[in-house]
Design a protein around this nucleic acid. Structure first.
Lengths: 228, 228
DNA sequence: CTTTTATGATAGTAAAACTATTAAATAAGA
DNA sequence: TCTTATTTAATAGTTTTACTATCATAAAAG
């Protein structure tokens, strides 16, 4: 109710016109999150979104070149927000081990509520990130998109987490590989728990983020503490 | 040159008509692998494929309902083949630790040649698996597709690898979660090495499968050997 | 009060995704 | 061998998606 709303700034322009600055833009963001969550990215179209917000395809195209760039925007927003949230939640924790543990809790639990954001439904966005985020980079345009800075938010978050790993063990040889692996696993395991349960011991319940965090901590601390 | 060609049998029918049984079917498989590898799955269409094989869209639709099912077929074929290959390469290795180590080599190196298959270009298919395999399950139809058995080959492979984990440490609590995590990581790390190098220590060279294997072995053995 | 800018309304194109119909080729049965 | 099913291919659609262009109007800025 009285949390200060944070303005998330992205380091790139996946958009043509900043949607944060207009009422129509904000409706595009808000309703696209609802619709993509409901229909999945493949079934989501600008036409359906236009109908939903009582506007036109042409108007939406003035904000985003295509639906892929809109997804880039949404996912980047999530990473930027999560990066801030991790920083905030791990601030002032002296013990590096405790700090990383806390960070893992945050990245796995980021779906559960969060009133800090006004027009963005973070838990719906988190579900989108679970199912759709990897489609952002798994394309033939990945190198161009990378040049345009579309993955900076994700890289920054991974880099922050990698530094926590190095704070525990400066000699660990694969901090970034380890972090990118568990970042992806954080989503996969929740997805598997719900849809392909034979691929994981984690159960598809409300507690699956907690169980996922436990598994990931096992894994990360085992790796970082490994005898060479 | 004189390796016996193996007929891979899939446990489901992603196809309408078995492409292995006709000349046109085999051309569809062979050329779709080439085209998807070249264009990426999003840009790949049945029209382009039809042109490529001097046939028509309608003819291709008699084999596969849509391009998603074709992808399911290709990816399943890869998992079934890889499962056989892992089994073959780990056969008669008594030491469970050595067996898992060998298995990790196989799943990370599966892109490098393999003449065992006649009309299927396994190294192109492996590149497709790296970039497109997760799109097979990251859809709103995942539960229906799962009921139709589309993921059985992947699950079987993961289960075999999980059993190797339990052979090393029967008390390890997350064998399937660990294996599904490293299976996905095996592709992600190769992809990151090539396109998003700041997310991993693995370098995008010809040796990236070897380096990935080293990283994954570190991780897996650390987890499995962990002091509780 | 004028000019820029944003949105809306309308219409259109090109390609993708899929379907229906018919023709030709092949195999099976009498 | 001839007829009749059946399979496969070719043609020609339809519908939907992904966009683009144009113009009118409303609102905001100068």
């Amino acid at each position: 109710m009285n949390t200060t709303s944070i303005k998330i700034n992205l380091s790139h322009k996946a958009y043509l016109r900043d949607p944060e600055l207009t009422e129509l833009g904000q409706r595009i963001i808000k309703e696209s999150i609802r619709l993509i969550d409901e229909l999945g990215f493949e079934q989501f179209t600008f036409r359906k979104l236009a109908t939903e917000i009582n506007s036109t395809e042409a108007s939406i195209y003035r904000y985003f070149e295509n639906k892929h760039k809109l997804l880039v925007y949404l996912v980047s927003w999530h990473w930027a927000w999560l990066d801030h949230f991790v920083l905030f939640q791990t601030n002032n924790i002296a013990d590096p081990r405790e700090r990383l543990s806390r960070a893992i809790d945050v990245i796995t639990a980021s779906g559960t509520d969060n009133p800090a954001t006004l027009h963005i439904n973070e838990s719906a966005l988190y579900r989108i990130v679970i199912s759709e985020a990897s489609k952002v980079y798994l394309t033939k345009e990945v190198d161009d998109d990378n040049k345009d800075g579309y993955f900076l938010e994700y890289k920054r978050l991974c880099h922050h987490l990698s530094e926590m790993v190095l704070d525990i063990n400066p000699d660990y040889p694969y901090p970034h590989a380890l972090i990118s692996t568990i970042m992806e696993a954080a989503h996969q395991q929740v997805f598997f728990a719900e849809h392909l349960p034979s691929l994981t011991e984690i159960r598809g319940t409300q507690r699956s983020p907690v169980e996922t965090a436990t598994f990931l901590k096992h894994l990360v601390f085992a790796a970082v503490d490994q005898k060479r």
